[in-house]
Design a protein around this nucleic acid. Structure first.
Length: 266
DNA sequence: AATCATGCCAACCGCTATACC
DNA sequence: AGGTATAGCGGTTGGCATGAT
């Protein structure tokens, strides 16, 4: 029968959000909390559909989001997790709580995929007699592009704006609300992932909740990339090998012990 | 200086899963 | 139990910025 559109197309504004719209949305969410998106356009007067409001919040306005400037550490995690999970951006994002799935997806599509392609072609060359130069391979990973970081987390900007505003009571209210929401969100996220707040660095253990389905799903996925017919060849890509090599050099020790653990599970 | 090509990212679209009545 | 609405996810696109010619 087909799902009807999330909202009437007539009178619905599309395209980039304005700061004014952001402020309205943030203020509303700080007061009422995220959720019940259907009521957001009605209650705020925003000429946006509920879906657009939700996306704007989750991908841009939500507190605690880090934008741009992916670290080599994060790149390594994304690369490896993508190899393991496939294009499960939401799942990957759950391991990088400060990043949104959209951000990770964009970064993958615009940067990492190219690097991987380049690396794989290098691997092909390498496999044809050229000895591996780890430093050269590493450069393809660590020389991150100048991913524009100009778009700071607008909620922080808004907080700053509110703080600077003469309406101090409102600013304080919103600020406090924001903090509460941040804490709520973090608490909520802790329910979903143990890798919150730097816990990745403290060790990697497959999340009990996700491990089974993820590993199962991942296994299926990896098999697509690998031979998938029970051959003993491990489905390690060049990047994974590189990451594993890093373990021996101590460069990515904290990351790689869990990564090896995951790899072994496959 | 103007034009074209490319890269990047925010936002949208369409689908599936889940919740609710 | 079945239908409908909503939330969530991944793929795709539009438009701006920047670089190359």
């Amino acid at each position: 029968m087909g799902r009807p559109p999330c909202c009437d197309k007539i009178g619905i504004k599309k395209g980039p959000w304005t700061p004014e719209e952001d402020i309205i949305l943030v203020s509303y969410i700080q007061e009422h909390g995220p959720g019940n998106w259907r009521s957001v356009p009605t209650n705020t007067g925003l000429l946006r559909c509920s879906k657009s409001c939700r996306l704007r919040w989750t991908n841009y306005l939500r507190p605690g989001i880090k934008r741009g400037n992916f670290t080599p550490h994060e790149e390594g995690m994304i690369i490896h997790l993508q190899a393991l999970l496939g294009n499960k951006w939401a799942s990957i994002a759950s391991y990088l709580p400060q990043r949104t799935d959209n951000d990770i997806k964009n970064y993958w599509n615009t940067h990492l995929k190219k690097k991987l392609n380049k690396s794989e072609s290098e691997e092909r060359i390498i496999s044809e007699n050229i000895p591996l130069q780890p430093s050269a391979a590493r450069n393809t990973i660590n020389h991150r592009s100048t991913y524009a970081s100009s778009t700071e987390n607008i909620s922080r900007l808004l907080e700053g704006w509110m703080r600077a505003s003469p309406k101090s009571s409102t600013a304080n209210f919103l600020e406090q609300k924001s903090q509460n929401r941040t804490n709520d969100l973090m608490d909520h996220h802790n329910d979903q992932s143990p890798y919150e707040q730097g816990s990745w660095d403290q060790g990697f253990h497959v999340h009990p909740k996700n491990s089974e389905e993820n590993v199962k799903c991942d296994h299926d996925h990896v098999q697509e990339d690998g031979d998938g017919d029970g051959d003993a060849t491990p489905p390690l890509t060049f990047i994974e090998k590189w990451l594993l090599e890093e373990t021996n050099t101590g460069g990515q020790m904290e990351v790689m012990s869990p990564l090896m653990e995951l790899s072994n599970m496959l």
